[in-house]
Amino acid sequence: MTQEKLIVLNDDEKAKFLKSTKDLFFAVKQIHEWVESDSLTEEMAGILPSLIEGHFCDISKQLNYESALTKEKEERHLQIRNANQRIRELEKQLGEAKPLDGLPEQLKHLASTVSNWWNKHGFHHVSDEEFTEYGHYKARFCFMLDHISMFSETPVTDKISKKDRLKQLAAEGYEIVYNKYGRSPELLDNDNNRSRVIKLIQSRFPSAVVFKTRNHFDRSEGYFTIRDMEVYIYDLKDIVREA
Results as ranks from 00 to 15, higher is better:
R86Q: 10
E13M: 13
D12I: 10
S20Q: 08
D189S: 10
L78C: 03
I87D: 06
D164G: 08
I47A: 10
K167N: 15
V210D: 03
L24S: 04
L166H: 01
N193H: 03
R140W: 11
G122M: 04
Q106L: 14
E36T: 11
L166S: 06
S184H: 09
E186T: 15
D146T: 03
A111H: 08
Q106N: 11
Q85V: 01
R194P: 01
Y134H: 11
E66P: 00
C142D: 11
E172N: 13
I201F: 02
G182V: 09
T70V: 10
M229H: 08
G222I: 07
T21G: 00
F26V: 12
M150L: 08
D158M: 03
L166T: 05
P155V: 03
P185I: 02
A243G: 06
K16M: 09
A170W: 00
Y134P: 01
K138L: 15
D11F: 04
L187N: 02
E13V: 03
W34H: 08
F17D: 02
F17G: 05
I176R: 06
N193Y: 01
V35W: 03
H55W: 09
I198T: 10
E230C: 05
W118P: 00
D58K: 10
H77L: 15
D228V: 00
L63I: 05
L169R: 00
E175C: 07
S115A: 14
Y137R: 07
L100V: 14
R214S: 14
F205T: 02
E42M: 07
D101K: 11
A97F: 06
D164Q: 11
K98M: 13
K73I: 04
V114S: 02
S50T: 12
L40N: 06
H77E: 15
L18I: 04
E13Y: 03
E175Y: 03
I87T: 09
E175D: 12
E153S: 08
S37K: 10
E75M: 11
E186F: 02
E75L: 14
N193D: 04
Q85N: 06
S39D: 13
C57Q: 06
S184I: 02
V177L: 08
Y232N: 11
N10F: 06
L187F: 03
P99L: 08
F17I: 07
C142T: 15
D11S: 13
L188Y: 07
M150N: 12
R88A: 15
M144T: 03
Y65Q: 13
D189E: 11
H125I: 05
G95I: 04
Q106K: 15
V231R: 00
F56P: 01
E242N: 14
E186D: 07
K19T: 12
P104D: 07
E242Y: 04
R196N: 08
R76W: 05
S67Y: 05
I31D: 01
D228W: 01
D146S: 14
L9S: 06
K5Y: 04
V114Y: 00
E89N: 11
K180R: 14
E72F: 08
M150V: 07
R86N: 07
Y178M: 10
H216F: 12
Y234G: 01
L24P: 02
M1N: 14
G173A: 08
T2C: 00
K29V: 03
H136K: 14
H216T: 15
S207Q: 07
L9Y: 06
D101Y: 09
V114Q: 02
Q202I: 02
K14C: 07
K92T: 08
N190L: 09
L110N: 05
A83L: 13
V126W: 00
S112V: 05
R81Y: 01
